[in-house]
Amino acid sequence: METSGGLGISLEVCGLSRVFGARRALDGVSFTLPEGAFLSIFGPNGAGKTTLLRVLSTLAPPSSGTATVLGKDVLEDASKLREHIGLISHNPLLYPDLSAEENLQFFADIYCLDCPQERIRELLSAVELDHRCLDIVRTFSRGMLQRLSIARALLHSPEMLFLDEPYSGLDPHAVDILDALLARIRKRHTFVMVSHDLEKGLELCSHALILAKGKVVLFEERNRIDVGEFKGLYRQTVGMGVS
């Protein structure tokens, strides 16, 4: 399958809904994303952004509709799909009583990596934590935790990376490291990022999506977006409230 630009499709969402009791967190979400794209998802609190990310990353099943990530259905091919995706969340998803190296070793074992020690050293160096590799994660600052979390997510070289507010709580140095890492791996990956930071989200993205009350308000390529109009529309959707 190819997009109009000739690129393959990495993400295809069609009529996706997720219902919690009487509340529709996602309501008929549809969009298509080409390979190598960087999608920034914006929206007010409770708009359904994190729910969308959880469904796409196979952590939650959709109530109706379909989502195909890297050609694999999130429901039917979930196990195979998980080999190719990574998630960086505002939660570090690390064991606090293990060292940085032990955490990465644990997840390397789960992903059955070849030469895990080499990969672990490479990633710890990339996130500038090689000097703290033997320290217990519980002693790490928020920024260091997030950097280690990035290393964990990249351990198995995923083709698609989901980022849930990855810049939240980071100091400027950690922001620089994350920016440099994302720039380094940008060409080889497709990204889906949830963010409240309009400036950062628009700076990074190739596509932008605004979600409100579980519905897509706007999905557009970055180069077709007028930043002023986009910000106006975003402010309007924040006033729409939650789903």
Binding site: L93, P96, Y111
Partner: peptide, 14 residues
């Protein structure tokens, strides 16, 4: 506590 369950659920193990 630290969301590690999600990290396990994201991994390709049944």
């Amino acid at each position: 506590d630290q969301g590690c369950l999600e990290a396990l659920l994201l991994s390709p193990i049944d």
